[in-house]
């Protein structure tokens, strides 16, 4: 199968000194929604601008559906759609006119222009304000118009640079719902940069994290979360003291990394195993010792945790979890991320 995007050792150095990208390797399957996460200045936008042929990499190569985007950039431009981070529609003409100008630039034949434009307006829910000046649009409407401009020509790959930056939650949801419907219909590959973890989590098939110009992690949201190995089980027990044997037995389970007990709360940190499959085994030990369980909670890492681990500031898994008191929020912190507190 031909990859939608195939990046081989791309490096970009600005002005002979700033290394924005440092040997990026990435593969994106056709018809996937691919999210690229990274902190500010990590090289996300630079990579996207190279992939959209705005400038060339210093070294390395990349292919969109097998077409070399350095040697054959004109061909690549015919099959991609792109929405930059900043506003990219003319505010002093109407939404319809923006689409009209773009349809002409893209050479949509005049016979099908009207239909294509009205389809694009409809798919982004913009029929009503189509004849208003874009200046009067809200942020979410502007974004949807921009995406409509990009979708209108049915690109094989759609590049979105922080597509929902600065939008309120309902506008974000509207943008993604429209995108999802479009993608289902046309099988478009979508490649987007974002800061919103929940967006990457919900809408993407695969995620890569970029840090200082390098891809530090790549996989599905689940892969990434599991890679943290910091799932935990939390039990509320009916006793204030726990016999040593029970603790030792739980510790002896091969997937348990740590066990904490404090104030009738038992916390079991797990590695190399999913919390839901580990649960029965821990429960078995507790029940064998006749300990009554009042409630159970599972704590799984979120994509935020993944991001902080791979792209955040210094994150170390503290050895002394015992000092941390209490509840579920802290279970996550105990996984990594809390050097300061100690």
């Amino acid at each position: 199968m031909v990859l939608a995007i195939d990046i081989k050792q791309i490096t970009k150095i600005f002005d002979n000194k700033v290394k924005a990208l440092d040997g990026v390797e990435l593969e994106v399957n056709a018809a996937d929604v691919f999210a690229l996460l990274g902190p500010n200045g990590s090289g996300k936008t630079t990579l996207m601008r190279i992939l959209t042929t705005q400038f060339r990499p210093t070294s390395g190569n990349a292919y969109n559906f097998g077409i070399d985007l350095i040697r054959n950039d004109a061909e690549v431009r015919k099959m991609i759609g792109y929405v930059p981070q900043e506003t990219s529609v003319w505010a002093d003409i109407t939404g319809f006119e923006n689409l009209l100008i773009y349809s002409k630039i893209y050479g949509v034949p005049s016979g099908s222009r009207k239909k294509i434009i009205s389809d694009a307006l409809q798919s982004m829910g913009l029929e009503e304000p189509a004849n208003d000046l874009v200046r009067k649009y809200s942020g979410g409407m502007v974004r949807r118009l921009e995406i409509a401009c990009a979708l209108m020509v049915k690109p094989k790959i759609l590049f979105l640079d922080e597509p929902t930056l600065g939008l309120d939650p309902s506008a974000r949801k509207a943008v993604w719902e429209n995108l999802t419907i479009f993608k289902k219909e046309y099988g478009t590959t979508i490649f987007f940069n974002t800061h919103y973890m929940d967006e990457a989590d919900h809408y993407s098939d695969k995620i890569a994290i970029i840090m200082k110009g390098k891809i530090v992690k790549c996989g599905t949201a689940n892969d990434l979360k599991q890679s943290l190995r910091s799932e935990a089980l939390q039990f509320g027990l009916n006793c204030n003291a726990l016999d040593k044997t029970a603790l030792t037995k739980i510790r002896a389970l091969d997937f348990v990394r740590d066990v904490l007990f404090h104030d009738s709360e038992l916390m079991v940190v797990i590695e190399n195993e999913r919390a839901d499959t580990a649960l029965p085994k821990v429960m078995e030990v507790l029940m064998m010792r006749g300990i009554q369980i009042e409630r159970i909670a599972m704590a799984r890492p979120t994509l935020d945790d993944v991001f902080l681990k791979y792209a955040g500031p210094i994150t170390k898994i503290p050895e002394c979890c015992h000092q941390i008191r209490g509840c579920g929020r802290q279970i996550r912190m105990c996984g990594h991320n809390d050097v300061k507190k100690n």
Binding site: R49, T52, A74, R77, P84, E86, T87, S88, Y106
Partner: peptide, 14 residues
């Protein structure tokens, strides 16, 4: 250039 319009035009097949 400050907005994204130029970037977008330069990515168009023209």
């Amino acid at each position: 250039r400050d907005t994204g319009i130029l970037k977008r035009l330069l990515v168009a097949p023209a």
